[in-house]
Amino acid sequence: MNIFRFAGDMTHLISILILLLKIYATKSCAGISLKTQELYALVFLTRYLDLFTDYVSLYNTVMKIVFIASSLAIVWCMRRHPLVRRSYDKDLDTFRHQYVVLACFVLALLLNEKFTIQEVFWAFSIYLEAVAILPQLVLLQRSGNVDNLTGQYVLFLGAYRGLYIINWIYRYFTEDHFTRWIACVSGLVQTGLYADFFYYYYLSWKTNTKLKLPA
């Protein structure tokens, strides 16, 4: 475990806590894409199939349980909580994510470390995580304005994958046979998707104006 990866896990955890805080405190999920949250829940459920079989460390096991539980809690809130579900922008959150799920699954069948159930689902979760933010970015573009908490949520989420890429570079140079091509390439694509958001976020911070995404 190196500092970059630990920082990446922490920014990832913070992004989820920001979202839970926003939903719990404001009892509203306006501006949040349910589809992105469902994709993240699917990412964690398919990635941590080895939760009970491969014990790596207490830290890993605890974090996996926290990620699965929190992502399911967010989806449950947005679908079932009587107050929260009313504020869901149903007609703005129209990204057809089922095609993305299908494409990632087909890709995982073709490109994986080993053709086993666990490895195919692991690769699937890696590809899916790279594009899971798309419905959220589309929703932000549609709704135009980005409220602070949602903006910070996306910012921390982007920082997490960016830190993971630094972690992979670090491990590549410090460990002999370290290669994670699938995760690296997919992580680069994922961080690239955030790049334009980061740009507008930086502009809004620099010019001290409300974050506006070009429609």
Binding site: R5, D9, H12, D50, N60, K114, R180
Partner: peptide, 10 residues
């Protein structure tokens, strides 16, 4: 034994 490829990251 073959190098047990475990995913040690999250």
């Amino acid at each position: 034994h073959d190098e047990h490829h475990e995913h040690d990251e999250l």
